[in-house]
């Protein structure tokens, strides 16, 4: 969903740039509380993993493909503030070195694929988790729901930016319909990858999954005194 140069006009791209800078600033501030000696390298790995999986376009209907956006995944694994930063780092690398995503559209891309996916995806993850039993087995279900909706949500925000500052004159209804339609399908892929990845980390190191903190662990043998 990387927006190239020229889709959205200068003023709106600049406006999105301001939103992106604010989002990254909030991320930097909040990430301090999420990151410690152990989780900082994990967050770097999450960024690299998102970069790798974004290269893996999977086919959806009618000669169209999609790829992971990764905001929900990163937020669940390392925290929402750090999650925004992970996606921003990935988009920066892609824009600067791989000519993927226009440089004048970088603010748009960080806003849509970083901020929106994290806010919607992680928000919905938390909401869903709150409705399910407070145990680890609920985490992949909530991750699936959050990731699923985050992608069409990003498509909606793209459409919104297009409506305000699109450089071409295409009816907004058509853009919205086509964008949301295809991104609902891509969202299913996002949801599967997100749930599977979160489950894998949860299986081996539940303590490292930010979004699973405070949930009941599966029963395990412990020495006396460890009641935390």
């Amino acid at each position: 969903m990387h927006i190239p140069n020229g889709f959205i006009d200068g003023p709106v791209s600049a406006g999105a740039g301001v939103i992106a800078v604010a989002g990254v600033a909030v991320g930097l501030r909040g990430a301090r509380r999420e990151l410690d000696e152990r989780t900082a390298p994990l967050a770097g790995l999450v960024a690299a993993f998102v970069f790798a999986v974004q290269m893996l376009n999977f086919p959806v209907a009618g000669g169209t493909s999609g790829h992971l956006l990764g905001g929900t995944l990163a937020a669940i694994l390392v925290g929402p503030y750090t999650g925004v930063l992970c996606v921003a780092v990935v988009l920066l690398m892609q824009g600067l070195f791989f000519a993927d995503g226009g440089l004048t559209a970088l603010g748009l891309n960080i806003t849509i694929m970083g901020v929106v996916t994290v806010v919607v995806g992680y928000g919905l993850y938390r909401l869903t988790l709150g409705l399910l039993p407070a145990r680890h087995s609920s985490v992949p279900i909530a991750a699936f729901v959050g990731a699923l909706v985050s992608v069409p949500a990003a498509a909606c925000v793209f459409t919104l930016f297009y409506a305000i500052g699109g450089t071409t004159d295409v009816s907004i209804g058509k853009v919205a319909g086509a964008m949301i339609g295809v991104h609902v399908l891509i969202g299913i892929g996002e949801a599967i990858i997100t749930a599977a990845t979160v489950s894998s980390v949860l299986a081996v190191r539940p303590d490292l999954v930010h979004g699973a903190r405070g949930l009941a662990r599966p029963l395990e043998l412990r020495s006396a005194g460890e009641t935390r």
Partner: peptide
Amino acid sequence: ASQSPDGLEK
């Protein structure tokens, strides 16, 4: 990976 255009490109 699929070589088809992604959702936005399409």
